[in-house]
Design a protein around this nucleic acid. Structure first.
Length: 874
RNA sequence: GCUCGUUUAGCUCAGUUGGUUAGAGCACUUGCCUUACAAGCAAGGGGUCGGAAGUUCGAGUCUUUCAACGAGCACCA
């Protein structure tokens, strides 16, 4: 038997003492561990956070959503596997470690690959520790027995397997292409790692002097420094202005290097001067032109963005420094006739922020077209597709897949999966193992997204045929932000389709970005980031989680608001105090954990349980649609309005009545608070566990999700509502007329017999909440009595003239009169419209008829009241 | 240029298949320390749903169009 006195509740919610020790308790009892094969499996993989630093508010949001799903499904009786893990985050982590070494005056090239990797692993261990403690602080129900790291042995093996297979199938190739080069990180990037920003730049016009004759041709460029890599200039073959020059040559201005004038239809005659410099090694379009015309590919820059020996006197200068100096020099030589201001979009490295340099380089690529086609086929059928929530992201996803280009996967980094390609002279072998002593392995590593693309199956032991794979894949749901659909979701889709012949997950819930209170993106440079763990310190984890998951809608951004976190705290405090009240009464009335006696339910008990049933249904419905905000509102309104403001208040009458059945009221209070706690547990795991254990044995984590109560008798619900309306109306009248709640009134109620009987039986409630001196029931009230309250078919009469502000009351009634007149007109018009009565569903028509009747009756009552008031004026 | 999102109360946001009088939190007004909670209780005030047109018996919800803001993609010699 439960001892309700065993734990004393603080007078208000104290998040620290509530949260203290709970996570350890859950872990110790292994509630989060999966593997009960008697249950149906449900699996989610965490989007592995980078081991570059601490988790931010976005992580807190993303993981809390997953935790809600996990806890809900677990309580519903599923064998839930929420798989945790982290991402080595190649370029991001390496950049951090480089910076750390630099601070110590060391360069990674000095210490070499092996020593660098040792530092990197130490870094990883340190941050993994931090992340683990943060997951704990967030209360995440992760199954740590299945935790993986993208660079662990098993996952590395999966990556090598995938690379070799794709290579053998001809879907990975090595080639010289123009790639996006990050001069800071000194590595290639994929197309989507480049962010384009509109930059205030210039269109520089230069004269390329003709060889052997006077004059020259004027070209315009945004990147003057690349002229040292020019291998031609070109014009449109049909351009009459320049036809005569085709086949002749020009000097690169300021140098004596000679390049030919060629013609190509790629040139747009109307753009710029109609003459274009061709720099095949520094521009993707020029690269194509160069191929067509067999032009040399000349690289004029070093890997770090400085100019190389081809730049002559500018050698060693940074590209932008060179640009400035070069323009100045050519102006002096009269070879730069004009500079136009121009805004154009310039690619920046998503990671380091520097301007990306298009550059010719030999890299590894994934041939995307065949893989993309398979994904599109998969997406075309409902039974095989990834279903995005909200729905519109299906289109975003497919459009991107349709237009995807080959993916540059090699990175000139050390921290990552080393490419399993081996070289001996011109020979290349792709193999997981070294083919022999005289073979040298590729120095490069793979794009970090290459390994995270395998996350939904590599983590379950692939390429081995494991029981985990069999049981938990495809995973049921993935939760992530719309900002990484292309980076990650798309890659998981094609890898999973190709290697598992399955979608990686059935549902993909997309959320937005978290913004600051002004609506700006949270970023390091603005310094407007909010540390979730500061919030937890101040308001507790539950308040943070509740804020994050109930103030957002799928796919939409979320604005941080401390005010809303504070009101989440208030809500928790409310629940805390309701619980205190219940505990107090269970103790006072020696409640011994008796079950509810359903044969003894009062009308009010049924009214409450019927409402709770609707809440349970609504919560289930919304949870299935990932509408956690909508679900939370249903619970909130029930808790605050129906339960706290009404039932709990009404229960005080029951407890004060010596004749009443207190045991059943106790049983209902305990049952209802327990159900509320269960419904809220996914949102606020700590406080619900704390309170649950005051009223129940065991842990709420593994308790059963609420099911609807078998209460089918709704017959008196409307009478309860009527009674509550009477109370509200009288309270309203008191406020309007400055009648103190403490002033007892003489009340006469005019009602139908059935209602009178009900009200008579529940007089005690009217006594307490409407505070009558005398109460009588009369269907023919005397004219001298002031009629001030109208309610459905009930008149509540307060015969104390002196208490009533006649002017105010008249004003109120006139307003009411206008409103009702309008409603009657609207409703009559509707019902007189044959189109409505013939076309609308019968139920809607009937409902409208009922409404009209009600309005008419109310209008009639208001009219009578107004007459009575006027009589009183005289 | 293309695609998508947003525009609803003073502020921040909900509003699922078109169907009563459009909701919440915070803020505001009035009255209350009522033995769970003053970070509370009770009762209120406040929006015609960005503009226009259309479909429909009926539009915050569907269509077209315009505007502002935001995002993604493409182009950029």
């Amino acid at each position: 038997m439960k001892q309700f006195t065993k734990k004393e509740m603080a007078p208000k919610y104290e998040h620290k003492s509530v949260e203290n020790g709970k996570y350890e308790y859950w872990l110790k009892n292994r509630f989060f561990e999966s593997g009960d094969i008697s249950k149906k499996p449900y699996s989610i993989v965490i989007p592995p956070p980078n081991v570059t630093g601490k988790l931010h508010l976005g992580h807190a949001w993303d993981t809390t959503l997953q935790d809600i799903i996990s806890r809900y499904k677990r309580m519903q009786g599923y064998d839930v596997l929420w798989l945790p893990g982290m991402d080595h985050a190649g370029i991001a982590t390496q950049a951090k470690i480089d910076a750390k070494l630099k601070a110590q005056g060391i360069s990674r090239y000095e210490i070499g690959r092996e020593a660098f990797l040792k530092v990197a692993w130490e870094w990883k261990d340190e941050y993994a520790k931090t992340i683990h403690s943060q997951w704990a602080a967030l209360g995440l129900s992760l199954d740590y027995t299945k935790e993986r790291f993208t660079l662990d042995e098993g996952l590395n093996n999966a990556v090598l397997e995938v690379f070799c297979s794709l290579y053998n199938e001809g879907l990975i190739y090595r080639g010289e292409r123009i790639i996006n080069w990050d001069v800071e990180a000194k590595t290639a990037l994929s197309n989507i790692e480049v962010e384009y920003k509109d930059i205030e730049g210039a269109f520089y016009h230069f004269i390329y002097p003709l060889v052997g004759e006077e004059g020259g041709l004027e070209i315009a460029t945004t990147r003057p420094e690349t002229m040292f890599g020019d291998s031609a200039i070109m014009v449109h073959p049909d351009d009459e202005r320049y036809q005569k020059y085709i086949g002749k040559s020009v000097y690169i201005p300021g140098t004596n290097r000679i390049i030919p004038i060629i013609s190509d239809e790629y040139v747009e005659r109307d753009f710029g001067t109609g003459v274009v410099k061709v720099t095949p090694a520094h521009d993707p379009n020029d690269f194509e032109v160069g191929n067509r015309h067999n032009l040399p590919r000349i690289i004029c820059m070093n890997e770090d963005g400085t100019m190389n020996e081809l730049a002559g006197k500018y050698q060693g200068m940074d590209r932008f420094e060179c640009r400035k100096q070069l323009v100045k020099d050519l102006q002096e030589l009269g070879l730069c006739p004009s500079i136009e201001k121009m805004t154009h979009s310039v690619g920046h490295s998503e990671r380091t922020g520097v301007v990306v340099e298009p550059r010719l380089s030999k890299q590894w690529f994934v041939k995307m077209q065949p893989l993309a086609e398979d994904v599109l086929k998969m997406q075309s059928k409902p039974e095989t597709r990834i279903d995005f929530i909200p729905e519109r992201f299906n289109k975003t996803f497919s459009t991107w897949i349709e237009n995807t280009q080959d993916w540059c996967i090699s990175r000139q980094l050390w921290w990552g999966h080393r490419i399993p390609a081996w070289y001996r002279g011109d020979e290349v072998i792709v193999s997981k193992i070294c083919p022999g002593d005289d073979w040298k392995q590729d120095e490069d590593v793979l794009d970090t997204w290459f390994s995270s693309g395998l996350w939904t199956f590599s983590t379950f032991g692939w390429p081995e045929k494991t029981a985990l794979l069999e049981r938990y894949t495809p995973t049921d749901c993935l939760v992530t932000g719309y900002d990484i659909i292309f980076f990650w979701v798309a890659r998981m889709a094609f890898q999973s389709k190709h290697f598992m012949n399955e979608r990686p997950f059935k549902k993909c819930m997309i959320h937005g970005l978290i913004r600051d209170e002004q609506g700006r993106k949270m970023s390091k440079s603005l310094g407007n980031g909010v540390d979730p763990f500061d919030v937890i310190e101040k308001y507790g984890c539950d308040a943070l989680r509740y804020f994050l998951t109930t103030n957002s809608t799928p796919g939409q951004d979320l604005r941080y608001s401390e005010e809303k976190i504070a009101s989440s705290w208030n809500y928790i405090n409310k629940i805390w105090n309701i619980s205190r009240y219940i505990q107090m009464n269970l103790i006072n009335y020696n409640y011994n954990d008796e079950a509810i006696d359903y044969t003894k339910l009062s009308s009010i008990d049924k009214w409450l349980l019927n409402k709770l049933n609707r809440v349970i249904d609504g919560v289930n419905e919304n949870f299935e649609k990932y509408e956690f905000g909508e679900a939370s509102k249903l619970i909130y309104n029930f808790v605050w309005d129906d339960f706290a403001s009404w039932y709990v208040e009404l229960s005080k009458v029951t407890f004060n009545d010596e004749a009443s059945d207190k045991v059943n009221t106790c049983a209902i209070l305990k049952e209802v608070i327990t159900t509320i706690l269960k419904l809220l547990h996914p949102y606020m795991p700590f406080v619900t566990e704390e309170i649950y254990q005051i009223f129940n044995e065991g842990s709420i984590v593994v308790s059963d999700w609420p099911t609807v109560y078998n209460i089918i008798d709704h017959s008196n619900d409307y009478k309860v509502d009527k009674m509550l309306n009477i109370i509200t109306s009288i309270r309203n009248m008191r406020v309007n007329n400055n009648v103190a709640p403490s002033k007892p009134l003489t009340m006469i109620i005019d009602a139908k017999e059935d209602d009178v009987n009900f009200l008579e039986q529940h007089k005690a409630y009217l006594k307490r909440f409407a505070n009558y001196e005398t109460l009588s029931f009369d269907n023919e009230p005397s004219k001298e009595q002031a009629q001030v309250i109208v309610l459905d078919d009930l008149n509540i009469i307060i015969p104390l003239k002196e208490l009533i502000d006649l002017e105010k009351e008249k004003e109120r009634l006139n307003k009411e009169f206008t409103r009702l007149t309008n409603e009657v007109t609207r409703s009559s018009n509707m019902l007189n419209n044959p189109s409505f009565t013939s076309k609308a569903p019968q139920a809607k028509v009937d409902a409208e008829k009922e409404k009209l009747e009600k309005y008419k009756q109310q209008l009639n009552e208001v009219e009578n009241l107004l007459k009575s008031l006027e009589a009183m004026y005289e």
